[in-house]
Each structure stands twice: as structure tokens, then as C-alpha cells.
Amino acid sequence: MRARGTFEQELTDLQQDILRLASLTEETIYGAVQFLLQQDVAGANQIISGDVLIDKLAQEIEDKCVKLIATQQPIAYDLRLAITSLKFLVSLERMADYAVNIARATLYIYGYPLNRQLMEYTSKMSRVVQQMIKEALDAYVYNDAQRAREMCSLDDEVDFISAKIFQEAVRAMREKTQPQIVIPAVYFLLISRYLERIADHATNIGEEVIFLITGEKRELN
């Protein structure tokens, strides 16, 4: 009975660990985009150095998770919880890495003239992406498969804005009057790519939440 009790506790702890990592990832992504839009180099540097903590936390949770599977041999929902936790870890950590890439791009484009339109699109895209992450994690917190299913419709919007950024960047680069716009435009293209990847990972988390709750694998996009 006692063993069961600690096992339950370990599972709850694991879920909390995941949420803790998720909170860090969410903040990192938000910060990275904000500092990009505000051209805040100090903030961007902070984001880059903060990644160490995320990596460390992810490593710790992974060890814990492996130990849990090895010693407790969970089954059914509990096993799914352990497995999805492992997958969340990878996704969350990867998302944070993309955020770091965005922060690095902020450093590279600092001082260049910026295209207002691109900034606006990026801001909009980041809002949608963050909404997706929030929905996916909320679905996890609430154990709400429906929410996870609904969240994926946002992915189309991300793709749409990403296409717009592509068009605008190409248009800006074609303007011969301002050659110094090319470098920031290229970085904005990369940033839109990073955000898109983050959205994909958010979708993955959504899929995993559905798997966790219902036990069925589903491609959401």
C-alpha cells in the first residue's frame, strides 16, 4: 500500500515537473519575441544564458522519469503518463532552443533598419504560437482532449502568417534602395521558421495529450 502511495506521489511530482519546465519554456519564448520586438540586447542575452537552466531541468526530469518506469513498472494510464512526459520533455526543451535561436537573431540584427511590417507579422505570429502552447498545456492540466483537438486549428493561421512574412521579406529584399534591409529580412525569415517549428511542437504536445487521455494516436495536422 505504501509503495502505491509513493508511486502516486511520484506521478504527481512528475506532472508538476513537466509544468514547471513548461512554464520556463513559455516564458522563454515570450521573452525572446518581446526582446526581439523591443530590440533589447540585454534581454536577449538573458534568454540565451537562461537556456542552461532549462536543459538542466529537462535532464533531471528525464532521469526521474526513466527511474520511475524502471522501478514502478507502470501500466495503462500511468505508463502513458510516463511516456508522454518523456515526449513533452523533448518538445519543451526543443521549443526553448528555438526561442534561444530567436534571441540570437535579435543580437545579429541589432542596429540594422527594421521593416515595420515584418515586425508586426512576427508579433502576430508569436501571439498565435503562444496561444497554441497555452492551449496544449491547458489541455494537459485539465485533462481535456477536446481542447487539444481544437487548438490545432490555430496551426493554419501560423502557416498563413508565415507565408505573409515570406512574401514581405522577399519584397523588401528586392527593393534596391535599401541593401542593408537584406540581413534583417533573412533573419526574420529564419525567425518565422523557428516560430513555425515551435507551433509544430505545440501540436505534438496536443497530440500526446489526446493519446494520454484516450489512448489513441491521432495525427492532428
Partner: peptide
Amino acid sequence: EAYLGKNILSLIRNYDLE
């Protein structure tokens, strides 16, 4: 109602707060 009894991290996902 949705949050009573749940962990603070479920309510506010914020690392600093936790």
C-alpha cells in the same frame, strides 16, 4: 471550482511564482 485542490503550477504556470 476548476482549480481548487490543484497545484499552483496548474493555475499559474510561472516559474518564479512557484
